[in-house]
């Protein structure tokens, strides 16, 4: 089966021909399968945001191509527009793009642009609102009287309501408290499971990445430096650190423990895994 989304030698140069010319991404070749949860990490300015804005055709590549279902999204205008709806993109701090009088209307903006029928729009708005946990009574409120975290949910619902096959989120949890963060991640997982959607998430939190994604892409200076399961990527901690990145704190603890001579498995990156690993270690010792 062809991957749902692919990039071929994707390159983007900002401000070509001006004194501010800069290569944001170079020769990026990636493919995304249906139903995958992929994480993208990379230092500030490594080109993550630039990359994802190509995936729904907001940015036109200066080199290379983007394929949706094996077809170039730039092959014709209609398909480019269709791509916008099939690949939903939630920007960084999306709460600043709210504009309608009510939460309901704001969530309905996307589906309306798709040209759906009124009752279909209504269904989708309510479904999207329930995915992100917006209570019914908030739908008629003005988005501007909600808290920051609630606004963010509304903004995410606005994209989910288009029911995209691929949902891309740029640092969806930035600036939220731990409960708000876990809440939003749970919403995203719920959407993914319900729609068998592909989710691509940019994040600076290694913990968040480690406990959610099935595959990880590491960007470094506009290029893909590594890709693989979190388990594989996080074992290359030295390389990650040299790229200005980090590994989950629990993994750091385990690496130190191994350095101190304990025979622990260092490919753990969530507290649950750590606990399990420690228990088996103790169990093993007990036998000996």
């Amino acid at each position: 089966m062809t991957p749902i989304l692919q990039t071929r030698d994707l390159t983007h140069t900002y401000g070509a021909g001006t004194p501010f010319e800069s290569d944001a991404i170079q020769q990026v070749n990636l493919s995304f399968e249906r139903g995958e949860f992929v994480g993208i990490i990379g230092h500030t300015g490594s080109g993550k945001s630039t990359l994802i804005q190509h995936l729904n055709g907001l940015l036109k590549p200066t080199g290379g191509d983007v394929l949706l279902d094996g077809r170039s999204i730039w092959s014709d205008k209609k398909f480019t527009r269709e791509t916008r709806f099939r690949v939903g993109l939630v920007f960084q701090y999306p709460e600043y793009q709210l504009f309608e009088e009510t939460v309901y209307q704001d969530i309905a903006f996307g589906p309306k642009n798709m040209g759906l029928k009124q009752d279909e729009i209504d269904q989708r708005v309510r479904r999207a609102a329930s995915f992100v946990g917006i209570p019914e009574e908030n739908l008629e409120k003005s988005p501007f009287e909600l808290s920051g975290g609630q606004k963010r949910r509304v903004a995410i619902a606005g994209v989910i309501a288009m029911e995209p096959d691929v949902l891309i989120l740029d640092e969806p949890t930035a600036g939220l408290d731990p409960v708000g963060r876990e809440g939003i991640l749970a919403n995203i997982r719920a959407y993914q499971a319900a729609q068998n959607a592909t989710v691509i998430m940019v994040s600076h939190s290694m913990e968040e990445i480690a406990s959610n994604v099935s595959r990880l892409i590491v960007m470094n200076h506009g290029r893909v430096a590594m890709t693989g399961a979190p388990r594989e990527v996080f074992t290359r901690s030295k390389e990650l650190i040299s790229m200005g990145l980090d590994i989950p704190q629990i993994t750091q603890v385990f690496l130190r423990m191994r350095d101190m001579g304990l025979p622990v498995d260092t490919s753990v990156f969530t507290v649950e895994q750590a606990l399990e690993s420690l228990l088996t270690l103790r169990g093993g010792k007990g036998h000996a």
């Binding site: 804005q53 729904n56 907001l58 527009r81 916008r84 709806f85 939903g88 993109l89 939630v90 920007f91 999306p94 600043y96 793009q97 903006f109 996307g110 642009n113 798709m114 606005g158 994209v159 288009m162």
Partner: peptide, 13 residues
């Protein structure tokens, strides 16, 4: 630019 992009991502024309 940012806001325009965000709305375009929701199909604004």
């Amino acid at each position: 630019d940012k806001i325009m992009n965000a709305q375009k991502a929701r199909g604004a024309d």
